[in-house]
């Protein structure tokens, strides 16, 4: 085959020119399922959503509203409170989970046995559906009969009311978020830790660097891209938080809207109030924020657009 490259190329050229029209068309057949889906479930809904956000509507038709829906949303105290809740929960979930997950991953990466055992154990919460996890946590965090307050009490620490108090309810969601997400952070960190060239470590060992120095000056700088990836995917997920707050606090994020996220706000207006215009305007505000985060994400993960 290798001995006659020119002949092979000639044959290919002949085939290509003969079937070029037909063989081009066949590729569209390959792409038909995906693009049919993109048209129906991406392009149309996004345009229709924009249209709805400019109309006073509870279904088809409706009257032109211009930017009124946006004005309503952006001047609504409930909306801004949901934005605040979403960012508060997301921020603290990430501030806790990423460093903690990275430390665990570094430890798992350097222990000389049971590596896989630890990987499996730490990732287990992430395998559980967040809805089931929320169900379990309503009991774990119960102020009087819950497991957490029992241990906090034993240790002589304060025992908050968690989900029964608007002041601490967000922290209950954050705890659940940390518990559920930490496995993902560990797995991503481990994969990238193993991709750091061992030559870097070998060279610095010869120079007499200790394990901790290596971690500080080689591992952490090499993991910056991974942290950025986790931060951005974490934010994209956090901005879309809904499942656990819906299970625990319902559509309005009780107690007292303290855990209502933006998506819960959208759901409340779109599917319990059927105010499609207002809900669509809120989704567009959210969409723009997520879009910015996602573009950053694609940039750092080298998926060039």
């Amino acid at each position: 085959m290798l001995s006659k490259p020119s002949q092979k190329n000639m044959v290919n050229d002949v085939i290509r020119s003969k079937n070029s029209k037909r063989s081009q068309l066949i590729w569209y057949v390959f792409l038909a399922p995906a693009f049919l889906g993109i048209l129906c479930f991406m392009v149309y809904p996004i345009i229709e959503s924009l249209r709805l956000s400019l109309f006073n509507s509870s279904g088809t038709g409706g009257t032109w509203a211009g930017l009124d829906n946006y004005k309503t949303v952006l001047s609504s105290g409930d909306f801004w409170r949901s934005v605040y809740n979403t960012f508060y929960i997301g921020l603290f979930q990430m501030i806790i989970t990423i460093p903690l997950g990275f430390i665990f991953a570094s430890m798992i990466n350097t222990v000389s046995f049971a590596k896989n055992f630890f990987k499996v154990i730490f990732f287990l919460p992430n395998v559980t559906a967040i809805v089931a996890a929320a169900m379990i946590f309503t009991f774990v965090l119960h102020p009087d009969m819950g497991l957490l307050n029992y241990f906090l009490g034993k240790l002589g620490l304060p025992t908050p009311l968690w989900l029964s108090n608007p002041g601490t309810a967000k922290w209950a969601i954050i705890l659940l978020g940390v518990w559920h997400w930490i496995g993902f952070v560990i797995i991503i960190c481990l994969a990238n830790l193993q991709a750091i060239s061992s030559e870097l470590y070998e060279a610095s060992t010869i120079d007499g660097a200790s394990g901790f120095q290596q971690w500080l000056f080689i591992t952490i700088p090499n993991m910056m891209g991974t942290f950025a990836f986790l931060l951005i995917t974490g934010w994209i997920g956090a901005l879309q938080r809904f499942n656990e707050v819906y299970v625990i606090g319902g559509t309005t994020g009780s107690p007292n809207r303290s855990i209502q996220t933006v998506v819960a706000y959208i759901y409340e207006h779109g599917f319990t109030g059927f105010q499609f215009g207002i809900a669509s305007a809120a989704t567009y505000v959210l969409f723009v924020i997520i879009l910015i985060f996602t573009m950053f994400n694609l940039k750092i993960t080298n998926m060039k657009l």
Partner: peptide, 26 residues
């Protein structure tokens, strides 16, 4: 080909939420 691939990657930027109501209606 290139444009279509960009569109495919573009779908990664579109979350579920803004599509919920139109898809429900559809």
């Amino acid at each position: 080909k290139k444009l279509m691939f960009i569109i495919v990657l573009g779908t990664l930027m579109i979350p579920m939420e803004p599509r919920l109501i139109p898809m429900y209606e559809m």
